[in-house]
Amino acid sequence: MSGWTHAAGPAVALPLENIDTDQLIPARFMSAPRKEGYGRFLLHDLRWRQDGQAQDIPTLDGAEILVSGRNFGCGSSREAAVYALVDHGIRAVLAPSFGDIFAGNAVNNGLLPAQIEDALAERLMTRCPARIAIDIDARSLSFEGETHPFTLEATWAEKLINGWDDIDLTAQHNDTIAAAADARRREQPWVWPAAPEQDLRTTGRGARG
């Protein structure tokens, strides 16, 4: 994955709170292989009615930045929600708060989850569609000549800027990991699963507690 520091592009507002990952991508689409692209599934049921007609939400076409309400990406851990955003061309989401798992998934796919003040989110949403420029290094965004800060953890900024991948990062710690596992095996061998005997136990015992 290639890293990035600066981006500038059209921003669209999604003025809702608690946009969960089930809305970002409904579960029924998740068996599709990624290579076919997940962009068409993004916010599918919010964008289209059952009869295939478009619903009344701002068009996402051409958007690179999304501004939304608090708790964006809450709910299911499905990384497919991030794939749908990324495959649709979104590079950054600006919101007052994010679901924890979603934010981690976003960073792992080069999507910036930028946390902004409530008031700023409100204001940006009234200005959208607008053009917003982002600087990850400076943790700032600018629009209409104003510049505002956003919050992003240092580790995440580094990963986004460098396009780092955790598997490579972790490989540098292989020896420590093995040593920790050895120590645990010596001190607490019971941590490893016991070989089950063939008696299948039932679940009822003591369960009325």
Binding site: S77, R78, E79, A80, V82, I101, F102, G104, N105, N108, N109, D166, I167, T170, A171, H173, I177, A181
Partner: peptide, 15 residues
């Protein structure tokens, strides 16, 4: 709970 990239990471590194 973790996302897919992290699952792959756990499969590969157990961490």
């Amino acid at each position: 709970g973790i996302g897919a990239t992290e699952v792959a990471h756990v499969l590969a590194t157990q961490t």
